[in-house]
Simulated scan of single mutants.
Amino acid sequence: MRGRLTAGMTLAALLLNVALAGCGSGLPAGADGELADDWVPMAQVKGIVPEVGSCFDSRPAPSVNSLVKPVPCGEKHLAEVAHVGTFTGDDDPGPEQLAAAYAECDTKTADYLGGPWWRWRLQLHLTIPMSRAWEGGARWFRCDLVEVSSANFDEAWTERTGSLKGDKPAALLVGCANAVSKNDRIDSLTEAPCSSAHNAEYIGFFRAPRTMPYPESDRQWFALYRQCSELATGYVGVTMSQWYRLSTIAWPAYPEAWAAGDRRVRCVVYFGTKKVKKTVKGTKGKGLPGF
């Protein structure tokens, strides 16, 4: 279960359903049978620290080989480093350290982009050194930005050219969307211009507490709805009692990312079968279905 929608304070039964060689007998050419002579010394691995603004053509992963070389951002790539931080201590980072690193990534990435990353069709990935580099003393972590074809599909990564720092294409902004339901489930949520007819809009983002398990029960989902609703009141300009006339979609990170410490939750207002042709931001409910 990837996400859920609630109609006001009543827990609705609608759930967001996201789509989300054999061995030869001889040695290969160029191999000498000696394993250790081609290894990079530990000190060299430790000394390779990513640089802010560098780009990589490899897919995001929880940990990476420190020796992977960046590519020019003007060429096709998948990830761009917006910030590089440092872990303290010698133990592998646990949930608390990962959560703190994500929080730092959120803040520093906003400085790099000129606004919070979730405003655009982007994802923020935390990347740490592989175990061998960690054992060699590497303590850095990377905050990688990745463009996606849809904000709601975690692995819809797409290649891009050019840096995300500075001016960005207007089409990269995430604002309004069209939600399609099938059999009492949200089947898809596709970005759309706010000036066109749409029935949903992104209203905010937050990170759930690191101690919170991936939501399964109604009570756990309600905790997410509550925070989304609090964000929405400020975004729309209404009171909490007024907000409950509308429905809210709480869209957490996929379970594997959640288990790795990523507690991101996107918040979306949903009008059901009704549609509007404007943003809900600052409207105070005027012209919105239910008001």
Rank of each mutant, 00 (worst) to 15 (best):
H125F: 13
T127S: 09
S163R: 00
N65S: 13
G162L: 04
V84E: 01
E96L: 02
W117A: 01
C143T: 14
S149E: 04
K69G: 10
D92H: 14
G94I: 06
A82P: 10
G114N: 05
D154Y: 08
T109Q: 02
T127E: 11
A82E: 01
P60G: 12
F153E: 10
K165C: 05
G175C: 08
R160H: 12
L78H: 02
D57G: 11
K165F: 09
D57Y: 12
T107K: 10
G175M: 04
P60R: 09
D111T: 12
N65V: 14
F141I: 03
F153W: 12
D106Q: 09
D144R: 05
S149Q: 10
A171C: 11
K165A: 13
I128V: 13
C73Y: 07
K108A: 00
P93L: 02
S54V: 04
A79W: 00
F141H: 06
E75G: 02
N65T: 14
W140A: 14
L173N: 05
H83W: 14
E104H: 14
K165N: 12
L78E: 11
E155Q: 09
P70L: 10
A82V: 08
R139P: 04
E147D: 08
T86D: 11
T88E: 13
K168A: 05
E96F: 09
A101V: 04
G175D: 15
H83T: 09
P93K: 00
E155R: 08
P169T: 11
T109V: 12
R59L: 10
A177W: 08
Y102D: 02
E80V: 06
A103H: 11
G162C: 06
D57W: 09
S66A: 15
L122M: 10
W118R: 00
D57C: 11
L113M: 06
K108I: 15
G162I: 01
G114L: 03
P62N: 11
D154S: 15
C105K: 07
G94V: 04
G94S: 07
H83V: 02
